[in-house]
């Protein structure tokens, strides 16, 4: 796909001008204005107040927890994405469509439901709740629950990047490597992985952004204990509900910054792929 698309033209004449203005105006309203609000509110009491948010121990704990959750969820989902793509894209077997549908299912799940299901399993009145309580393991209102909720919300993101690409690439290169004497691990490491590395990175970026920003699922399973089970998005909510708007928007700025950096990296990557 070359970037100057078919029929691309410079803006000339009244109709394209109007269309362009409406489109850009809409984007400014729907996406630009909220983003600007975040920055404006965060800096409304000056840079000092903005920075003070990040010296709060609760904020630091929230950042640490967010990083920890992403550090567990993203590699697991990446491993899953690679395994799923390897088996689905390179082999023919029955039940493949069903498996693909299942992998896509979390995309139609409300984040709140993605949290709810773990409560149903591991909550105080969940299937395994009493047993876990007996064993002294806390899942819900603790870090494991937050990790599980995050994983469920983000599970398809990397797999969906890899499966279509690996299916399109086919298995010929891998077969060629095998006839040239390469072993299974060598084939994966030297042929398959380099061929999908950009898509993998792309998926990891998206998955990471979603994992660090997840709110609904985490909100249900976290228990909102400050300094312990609050991720950064939950911390934003807590500060906002406490009417600490500068603090809430300062923390939100950090998350928005993550989103913008992710988008920038994604755009650069997409150009590299082409």
């Amino acid at each position: 796909m070359s970037s100057p698309s078919v029929g691309a033209r410079r803006v000339a004449g009244p109709v394209p001008g109007i269309l362009l203005a409406v489109a850009l105006g809409w984007l400014a309203l729907v996406i630009g204005a909220p983003l600007a609000t975040v920055l404006a509110q965060a800096l409304s009491k000056g840079v000092g107040a903005f920075l003070a948010t990040f010296s709060e121990p609760d904020a630091l704990a929230a950042i640490r927890l967010t990083l920890l959750v992403a550090a567990i969820a993203v590699p697991l989902n990446a491993a899953f994405g690679l395994a799923a793509a390897w088996s689905i894209a390179k082999f023919e077997f029955r039940g493949k469509t069903l498996l693909l549908t299942l992998i896509d299912l979390p995309l139609s799940l409300s984040p709140v439901v993605a949290g709810l299901v773990w409560v149903l399993l591991f909550g105080a009145r969940g299937w395994f709740g009493p047993w876990l309580e007996g064993a002294g393991i806390k899942v819900i209102f603790a870090v494991p629950g937050i990790v599980l909720g995050t994983i469920l919300v983000t599970v398809p993101l990397i797999a969906r990047e890899l499966i279509p690409l690996m299916a399109e690439q086919g298995a010929d290169e891998e077969l060629a490597a095998i006839t040239l004497g390469a072993g299974g691990w060598t084939v994966f490491r030297r042929v398959t992985l380099p061929n999908v590395r950009w898509a993998l990175l792309h998926g990891v970026l998206l998955c990471n952004a979603r994992a660090m920003g997840e709110f609904g699922a985490v909100s249900v399973v976290s228990g909102h204990i400050r300094g312990l089970t609050e991720t950064l998005p939950l911390h934003v909510e807590a500060l906002y509900n406490d009417y600490d708007f500068v603090g809430a928007f300062a923390a939100a700025t950090l998350l928005a910054g993550l989103a913008v950096v992710t988008l920038a990296a994604k755009t650069v990557l997409e150009r590299a792929i082409r």
């Binding site: 077969l175 006839t179 004497g181």
Partner: peptide, 20 residues
Amino acid sequence: SARERRIGLVFQQYALFRHM
């Protein structure tokens, strides 16, 4: 196995490693 046969196979679409 295919790996042990030491044959040279030229694929229909060549199957060159595109990243090498």
